[in-house]
């Protein structure tokens, strides 16, 4: 059981890390802001999700697990908002410097 769980966690976390790395590569290499944005949002939401998934079995209690999930949800929300903001900026609506 625990070996299986460890394996599952390992795979999930490794995948999460890969997503993060991919997001970075995207941010660095993609040519225009919009495509960078697209890649990035996916990468960090998914990457973090996978990591949280991998850590869940080890959370040690439903409360701790809930916290982990809450963290992920919040990052999702933040990502969505940032996207909104950035999209707004890219449309040139928003004047901040």
């Amino acid at each position: 059981m625990s070996t299986l769980l460890t394996l599952f966690s390992g795979i999930a976390i490794a995948a999460g890390v890969v997503f993060f790395l991919a997001g970075t590569v995207a941010l660095l290499r993609f040519p225009d802001p919009l495509s960078r944005l697209h890649a990035l949002t996916k990468a960090d939401s998914l990457g973090l999700g996978l990591i949280v998934l991998g850590l869940l079995p080890w959370a040690g209690g439903w409360f701790a697990a809930l916290k982990l999930i809450l963290v992920w949800l919040l990052v999702l929300l933040a990502g969505a908002t940032a996207t909104q903001l950035i999209a707004e900026r890219l449309r040139g609506e928003d004047p901040p410097p």
Partner: peptide, 17 residues
């Protein structure tokens, strides 16, 4: 807009946290 949605959604969570 989604921003205002989030602005409504976040505070209850945040207050608990």
């Amino acid at each position: 807009g989604p921003l205002s949605l989030l602005a409504r959604l976040l505070p209850p969570i945040g207050i608990v946290v």
